[in-house]
Every structure is written in C-alpha cells, then in structure tokens.
Design a binder for these strands. Structure first.
Lengths: 335, 335
DNA sequence: TCTTGGCACTCGGATCGGGCGAGTGCCAGT
DNA sequence: ACTGGCACTCGCCCGATCCGAGTGCCAAGA
C-alpha cells in the first residue's frame, strides 16, 4: 500500500507543513526535497495518501495538510528524534543546577521545558514511594495547631487543626507515640495503623487524637502527585490568530488540575505523544501532548510534558522533553 | 472648567463604552441616558472633554473613547462602588468556607476572585508578622536532611541540606538548642541570634551547625510573601481579537513573580486602581489593576487583585475585590 | 451666553466583482 | 511506472463603490 516513496512524501509534507504552516503542494515539495520525481508523480502519491486518510485538502485546489493519522504515522515510523545541540544540553544542566528544594526543582523544570520547547509545559510533582519519617505536632496560637507529616523523600505536608486545651506535655506524648507507631511505614501501612490508634490513648486526649488521626489520614490520602505546575502560557501567543478554536480551550484546560493529570497520562519511561483526538479531552482535539515519565529510579514516578498544536515539531519537542526528563531524574537521584 | 453636565457626559461615555466596547457618539448618548439636552450640546461638551484629555477619537468621524485620564477621573469622582447582591455574598462565603490550610485558602481565593470578576486574579501569600514557633531537623536518607521552620501563623518552610555523618542524638541536641534559642523570636531577632550560634557548639558539630544556620537564615530572608498565585487566565479569552496588543503582554507578565508583586503594589486597606500607564510595567499599558490589601488585622498584610482591560467595569470589579478581601481577612482572622 | 437644529463633510467598514496564481486531476505519450 | 501537458477550480488580493454614523461649525432662538 504505502511504498517507501509515499512515506517519503508524507514525511516531506509533514516537515514542510510544520515549518510553513501552510498547505503544501506538489511542486514545492519536489523543489525542497530530493524526491527525484516529477510533481505529477508526487500528486499521484498524494492522492493515495489522501485515500488512506493520512493527509487532507482544506479545499479543492489547495495543497495538502497532514491529518492526525498522518502525524501519528510520522511520529511512529518517520521521525527520528533530533539530538540536542551541545549548547542546549549545557543550558539544561545550568538551568537545573542549584535548585534548593523539591518545589524549586519543579519550578525550574517547568520554566526550562517551556523555554526550550517554546510551548506550554506541565510538570507533575514527583510521586514518592516514600515512607513516613516523622510526624510533628505544633501548637500555634490558642487552640490552633498544626500537624506535619514528613516523608523520606523530604516532602512536607501539613494541616491545621484544633488542639483544644490539651497540655503541651500531652501533645508531646501524643507526637512521640505517633512517631513510634508510624516511622518507617509506607503510606498504606500507616493508614492502617492509624485506624486503631485513637482507641489506645487516654480518654481525655481522645478528641485531640481523633482530630490528629483524621488529618493525618487525609494527608496520606491526598496524593501530592495530584499537583501539576504549568508554565510558558505566553508561548500560546504564537497562535493568536486561531484564538477561539485553539488557544482558549487550552487555557481553560490548563486551569483544571484534573484535566492536566489526564493529559499527562500514565508515566512511561519513554516519551509518548498523544495527537489531537487521541487526548481524551474534547477541548484539546487540536492539540498534541508530548510527555515523558521521570523520576529517580527505573520506574517512572511522575510525568512531565508539553502541550502544543498538532502541527508541532515533533522530533525536536520529543528530544527536548526526553532530555529534560532525564536531567531532572538525575538531579532527583543525586538528592 | 468641568461643570456637572460635562462630568455626567463623561460618566455616560465611560459606562456606555465599557458596555458596548465601541466608540460612543453624541446621539446614542442622549438616547441612552437622561441628559435632557440635544446631541449638539453634548458634542460641544465632548469637544471640551477632549480638549482636557479625558476622551479621544480613534479617528475623525468616530465616536469618543475614554482615555486613561478619563478612567481615572471616573474612578475617583464619578463611580460609586456597586454593592454586591445577596447571592454574590453567599457565593463568596460558601466558596471560602471549608478551606483546610493556608495554601487552600489562597487557592480558593484566587479561583473565587477570578470567577466573580471574570478576570485574571492574583493573590499574594499573606505576610506573617509571626514569630518562630519551632525549628525541626530531620534526617531523610543517608546524609540528606531537612530543616523546617514553623512560625506562629502556621507557615512551614523547608530546606534540604547535607547532614553529613552527625549522630542522631547530636542532631536532636542541636535541634533542641536551636528551639530554645529561637522560639518566640521575630524573624529579625532570630536572624541576629543565629549569627553567633555556630560558635557555641561543639567543634565536631560545627560544620553541620553552620549548614543548618545558613539554611535557616536563608529561609528567614526568603520572604514567603514573594509568592503570588494567579488564576482565571482563561478569562483573557474574551479579548482574543486584540491578542497581540493586549493579551500576550499580560500573559507574559503573569509568569514573572517579580512583575506580579510590582503590579499588586503596596498593600493598602482600601481598594486601589492603577489604570493603564499608571502601572509601572510597560507591557501592561493597556491594562488596569484593581487591588486591595487583606489580612487578619488592621494593617494589611498582603495584596490581592485582578488585572483586566482598561475598559473594565470598575464599580463592579472594585466591589468584588473589596468583598473578597474582606471575607478572606475574616477567614484568616478566625484561624 | 448657552442651547439647538441644520448642514456639509469625513472616513471606516461592508460589499462586490474581476484577475491572479497555486494547485489539482486526468490523459496520452514515453 | 513515470512524466509533461492541459483544462479547471477556488481562495485570496485589490480596487471601486456605497453607506451611515459621527463630527464641526454656523446661524438662529431662549
């Protein structure tokens, strides 16, 4: 069905269209690429490609434009990921070096990714297959208190709560017992143990213990992974002309954490591309997502990626996403 | 110079233009407002207003459009803040109720503000005239450690650091001494005391103590106030037609924390409006910022506000910003 | 002195039609 | 199987025209 030349034609169409943003015709194609055939021949191939649904005409007597299916074929079989230049690599390492904590790493990463791809970047907070390292209980003002949960990956989560009139010594005791109980446990184990805990404390302290346990359970349940940071929205400016159809839905989608998580999808070690309709979110039917898992070990812990127009430069974008994912993983692994 | 009728004409022009988004002419003006004079008279007044720089003509034979100066006069002397409807008030309280911690409050506030004003909202993290409540030192994996600073307002800040091979007992001792030293101190006092601290510890622990102090000083110096959360960017969609001139610069400005802080400006108890050029940021020459201080006490602790087109509905926006600022302050005060 | 109706004038925006050119599909020839 | 040639299609550009909202100015009236 699709011989080598037809594939070459498709590849040429995709790369020209990505660059020029305009339907590409047979003549221009043979001129810009070494196809060694005449425009007429290319036209025949184009007709075949159109028949198969890989390209389409905006209107009669216009050039051809790749369809989602065409991009898919391009990405799967025709594109080779461009290696990054030395300068780009240097920029990436420089940008990520010197991050002071997890928040900082994530913030820098999202900026970096937006910058190198000139697109909108999304970075999911790394999931931590971590164990409880410490529980802390602090009284703030009056009855107001704070419960802290620190895990071995260095993530700190917190909740306010009402500590009532409990004495400081009692609180310290409670804290110590919780630490003894939970230290070193995985999130699931910790949740189990917490269920029975209140019953074991002095009835007088029962209410406070109940409150603390409830908040802790909530903290454990609230996966911090559910946070996705977005950056580079200004890069959408390039698509101002199709604002309503292309930019607006993306802007709206970007405000919803839930949508972002769906967009990033399952974290996979390899770079994955979802083109147009393949995104299970209607408003992104004209956008593509290039994502990759990243993390400090072999199994990916979270996802990062960019969202851009279906007609994006896939080879470069995929290369950038892959590179950033790798460097961040490295930084995370180093601690 | 400007008699009552001219002011009335200006007010009418501003409100019509805000609504219709189109230059407003003399005929339309007398029809839509009870000015009780003829179009010709209004034209004379318009000429005077234009002379003074309050309005301008996009081109000969077009209607008039308010200038920044015109909006300024409108806001200062002609606008009365619209009271919110009962439903709006209810929505605000409902939206803010049930926030679990500071992050949550800020997140909800920014969403709320974006929603009620249909514009881009910015909320600065509340500054805390707080005192140190607790310092914590946790070992994570190997040498990696975490230093936590908790203040009386319940804000938790953290830094990673290298704890070397120090024994857990030594770390606990260090922590206890730091707590004794710093508890109850303001940020400035704490910074002072920390300077001398490392000299007082066992030489063997000196390196670790130095590291901890450095991070703590950095935490104290890094004003958490420097964080501004943005939301409702999708609301810019309404201005898609002037994308390049109006939306793009705003999108870019919104990505820069520094710019956001400048935009929000000094926190003042009252609602303040900066119109067009009054913003000391060139790219926002065509936008206005409506901001208000908020916080749990009389002196405002931080700012929140919205940014929108100079031709925005100032009375409603100011009302919404004021209301949200008040309710958030209330929530914060309640703890 | 202020207001008003009248009038000539301006100019942006919408509408229309023709010409241009890129691009196609098809066919006959090599 | 490829190629050159040819007729045809259609979107886009361009200029001409028309329309109407809106203005400035002036002379008359309160």
């Amino acid at each position: 069905m699709l011989d080598d030349r037809k594939l070459a034609v498709l590849r040429a169409i995709v790369s020209d269209y990505i660059q020029s943003r305009e339907p590409v015709g047979s003549r221009a194609l043979v001129e810009r690429h070494q196809l060694n055939v005449s425009p007429a021949t290319v036209r025949n191939d184009m007709a075949a490609l159109e028949e198969e649904g890989y390209i389409t005409q905006p209107h009669t007597s216009a050039g051809r434009v790749p369809t989602d299916k065409g991009y898919r074929l391009f990405v799967d079989r025709l594109a080779q990921i461009k290696p990054l230049s030395r300068a780009e690599r240097a920029a990436i390492t420089a940008f990520l070096a010197g991050a002071v904590d997890l928040d900082d790493i994530v913030t820098r990463t999202v900026r970096l990714l937006a910058q190198v791809t000139s697109q909108v970047a999304m970075v999911q907070y790394p999931m931590r297959p971590a164990v409880v390292r410490q529980v802390n209980l602090v009284r703030l003002n009056g009855a107001r208190g704070l419960v802290l949960l620190i895990d071995s990956a260095g993530a700190v989560s917190q909740r306010h709560l009402d500590l009532g009139l409990a004495a400081d010594d009692d609180l310290a005791g409670l804290r110590d017992r919780l630490n003894q109980l939970l230290q070193g446990l995985s999130q699931r184990q910790a949740a189990e143990r917490l269920g029975d805990f209140p019953a074991t404390v002095d009835p007088e302290l029962r209410p406070v213990a109940n409150g603390v346990c409830a908040q802790l359970l909530d903290l454990i349940a609230t996966d911090p992974q559910a946070r996705v940071v977005v950056g580079g929205v200004g890069n959408l400016a390039r698509f101002a002309d199709q604002f309503d159809s292309a930019v607006k839905p993306v802007l709206e989608a970007l405000e919803e954490q839930v949508v972002l998580l769906r967009l990033l999808g399952q974290a996979t070690a390899e770079v994955t591309v979802r083109i147009g309709q393949e995104n299970d979110h209607a408003s992104l039917a004209r956008a593509s997502v290039v994502a990759s898992g990243y993390g400090a070990s072999d199994d990916a812990w979270a996802s990062l990626g960019v969202v851009g127009p279906t007609r994006m430069d896939y080879p470069s974008t995929m290369a950038s996403v892959r590179a950033v994912a790798r460097y961040v993983s490295q930084i995370l692994a180093e601690g």
